[in-house]
């Protein structure tokens, strides 16, 4: 791996939520372990994809790393410095280097602001420009880098005047203006049409190639993850089930859940004559405490031990990790 940039160890995030009315009156709360002991590293210029179904804890993991969700336990080291215990004030420098791109470009942008002010906001908040000319120059540069050319055409427009793809480019311009070293991209193309998608992906990869930006790329789309990332981590109920290089995961997955996901992965033009191995049921509620393997209830090959003992995420071959009692 390239120079280590981010090191996440045993990250935990839990939320206390009120249950139904009766339980609330009795003062009962339930705990949702949204992220339940997640560890990984990301090198400079590296792309790690977090893949999983909704509710598996992808967004919470990404937000927790940027300290946008409460960290309940574990450690987050960015360029060797511990991030998890820092006060908001101490996070100032980190916030300039690490940015987030959200799924929904419609919600992420203030509808009443001009594009120039949306993109310029990080500069204003951090008081980075001495003159209005300098500010304008940097904003134009950021728009250009995000593929919105000529930038003058976009400065004084509102988000609603742009298409979905253009809006996501504006959001990306807003992240790039700080020249970040690390970006958490949370389903950045999920709401965009296929033909628009690749433009955004290319834009992100360009930043990696030119500036060495590293990404935690969050997606539910395994084939997209394969296309763009160096490594893939597959999450289920707050845990990483399997992690390895993109090709290794797609071609040699060992974990029963990862295998099931790969088995049903839609592929254009793949025609299926015989039935597929579709898992039955749905992901259980994250508030239910599971003692053994998180995947136990749906696992086609579970054994007695799976219900009582949780498997560890172990290296099964160099760089390939898997959390299952029966994968050695």
């Amino acid at each position: 791996m390239a120079e280590k940039m981010l090191e996440v160890k045993d990250l935990r995030v839990s939320f206390e939520v009120k249950k139904g009315l009766a339980e609330t009156l009795m003062g009962k709360k339930e705990t949702i372990k949204a992220v339940d002991g997640v560890s990984f590293e990301i090198g400079r210029g590296e792309i790690l994809s977090l893949v999983g179904e909704s509710g598996s804890g992808k967004t919470t993991t990404g937000k927790a790393i940027l300290r946008l969700a409460p960290v309940t336990g574990g450690s987050i080291k960015f360029e060797g410095e511990e991030i998890s215990g820092k006060s908001q004030k101490e996070l100032h420098e980190f916030r300039k280097k690490a940015q987030m791109i959200y799924q929904d470009p419609y919600q992420a942008l203030n509808p009443r602001q001009y594009i120039i002010d949306i993109v310029g906001e990080p500069l204003d908040v951090n008081d980075l420009c001495k003159t209005t000319e300098e500010r304008l120059e940097r904003i134009k540069k950021a728009l250009e880098n995000a593929g919105l050319v000529p930038p003058e055409d976009y400065l004084y427009r509102y988000p609603y005047e742009l298409s979905g793809g253009q809006r996501q480019r504006v959001a990306i311009a807003g992240s790039l203006i700080m020249n970040p070293e690390f970006i958490v991209a949370d389903e950045p193309v999920s709401m965009l049409d296929a033909s628009i998608r690749t433009g955004i992906i290319k834009l992100m990869l360009e930043q990696r190639d030119k500036m060495g930006v590293a990404y935690l790329f969050i997606t539910h789309d395994l084939s997209l993850a394969w296309l763009i990332s160096d490594r893939i981590a597959i999450m289920y109920l707050g845990k990483i089930m399997e992690m390895g290089t993109a090709d290794e995961i797609i071609n040699h997955a060992e974990h029963p859940y990862a295998k099931a996901l790969i088995n049903i992965m839609p592929i254009p033009g793949k025609m299926i004559d015989s039935g597929r191995d579709i898992l039955e049921g749905e992901t259980p509620n994250a508030a239910v405490d599971i003692k053994g393997c998180k995947f136990c209830a749906r696992c086609p090959v579970r054994q007695a031990i799976c219900e009582t003992e949780e498997p560890e995420l172990r290296e099964i071959s160099p760089g390939h990790l898997c959390a299952c009692h029966f994968v050695k």
Binding site: S163, S195, R197, T198, K202, W226
Partner: peptide, 23 residues
């Protein structure tokens, strides 16, 4: 043709497709 090429195919090579210019 373009639309098909916009969907990654894990059986092929890892090349980012061109996409379709414009809207």
């Amino acid at each position: 043709k373009k639309l098909i090429s916009c969907f990654p195919d894990v059986r092929g090579e890892r090349v980012i497709p061109d996409g379709i210019p414009g809207y």
